[in-house]
């Protein structure tokens, strides 16, 4: 079955696939900052060129006991467990927005540790379980 023709086609195909993979890899590598849907607080701390008027997204976890609501303004802290950023927001939040859960905020930076959001999205994790089980786990943790 492995005639000369077949061998030739196999080598051509593997060459094509390898070059395609390499090309795609380099394209994606150079586009990384555009592919990232949001930056973490650490990314923002480390970045050199902060343009304050530019719209960006910051994502991470809502820090426990940090949500503060008054006069329709919601203030909370996004953390990635290394760095934190204060967020101020006016408007409605999604149902899943709560302490200790993932969040993505869209808006502008005032400075490296203060962010004014004009849209809040909730990010949930990949774990699914019934509510009774979650209560049981909470009890065990205490």
């Amino acid at each position: 079955m492995l005639t000369k023709k077949v061998k030739k086609r196999v080598s051509f195909l593997s060459l094509l696939l390898i070059s395609l993979v390499l090309a795609v890899f380099f394209i994606l590598k150079s586009l990384t900052s555009n592919i990232l849907y949001f930056k973490s607080p650490t990314d923002i701390q480390l970045s050199q060129d902060i343009v304050s008027k530019k719209k960006i997204r910051v994502g991470g976890m809502v820090k426990k006991d940090s949500i503060n609501i008054n006069n329709e303004e919601i203030k909370f802290i996004i953390t990635d467990l290394k760095n934190e950023i204060f967020v101020s927001y006016r408007g409605t939040v999604p149902n899943l927005f709560s302490e200790g859960k993932g969040v993505v905020a869209e808006g502008t930076l005032k400075d490296k540790s203060f962010f004014i959001a004009d849209r809040i999205l909730a990010k949930h994790d990949e774990k699914y379980m019934p509510p009774e089980l979650k209560d049981l786990m909470k009890k065990n943790a205490k």
């Binding site: 990384t32 949001f38 994502g59 999205l121 990949e126």
Partner: peptide, 18 residues
């Protein structure tokens, strides 16, 4: 990459977080 979409619940090694 950072995505809004959550990671896979069923991993390639067969473990599942569902």
């Amino acid at each position: 990459w950072n995505t809004l979409h959550q990671p896979s619940s069923i991993k390639l090694d067969g473990t599942s977080s569902i």
